[in-house]
């Protein structure tokens, strides 16, 4: 029992460390906000992470950043395991993560849309003025996870996190 309690405390501390690791391409959100960290196991100590997009070049950087953060916090003996299954979905982005994305100027993906398609049928909400009067400019954007949109009311272009 004692060890279980200890383990929980350690897992919480590890998660707190990971919550400070920013995503390399969208530094406003952390790897825990994005749902990239799938869990912490204590015996043996392992952090499980999952890639967002198959070809996302950030995947390697994320692993290196997680490693560095763990080492720095004294968790050098905690391993990192990458798993593909179940496949990552934007539904795993936390509510806090969605708010951070919006504040950063990226329209977050609608919840529950991830299972079917990368494309959301609903219009994106402009992260600047809140208008739904928006239009897709390009289905692919500056990173694999984003599409380019523009707001037809405030005229500003913005990124939308693709549903995945």
């Amino acid at each position: 029992m004692v060890s279980e309690v200890l383990d929980d405390a350690v897992a919480d501390r590890i998660m707190a460390v990971l919550a400070t690791v920013p995503d390399p391409e969208i530094p406003a959100v952390s790897v825990t906000d994005l749902g990239i960290v799938r869990g912490v196991r204590c015996d043996p100590p392992v952090v499980t992470i999952t890639p967002t997009y198959t070809g996302c070049p950030a995947t390697l950087v994320i692993e290196a950043s997680v490693r560095a953060a763990l080492d720095e916090a004294g968790f050098a003996d905690v391993g990192i395991k990458t798993v593909l299954s179940p496949p990552w979905t934007t539904d795993w982005i936390s509510d806090e993560g969605r708010e951070k994305l919006r504040a950063y100027g990226i329209a977050p993906p609608p919840k529950g849309a991830g299972s079917r398609s990368l494309r959301a049928d609903s219009p994106a909400e402009c992260p600047r003025c809140g208008s739904l009067h928006t239009q897709e400019v390009s289905r692919f954007g500056s990173t694999p996870c984003k599409a380019l949109w523009r707001c037809l009311d405030c005229q500003e272009p913005f990124d939308r996190f693709k549903c995945h």
Partner: peptide, 21 residues
Amino acid sequence: ALEIDLSLANIGLDLIGQASL
């Protein structure tokens, strides 16, 4: 066009990711 450049490069990236796996 820029948008097509982004699209084709991103599709290429996805495919290379599949290949790697």
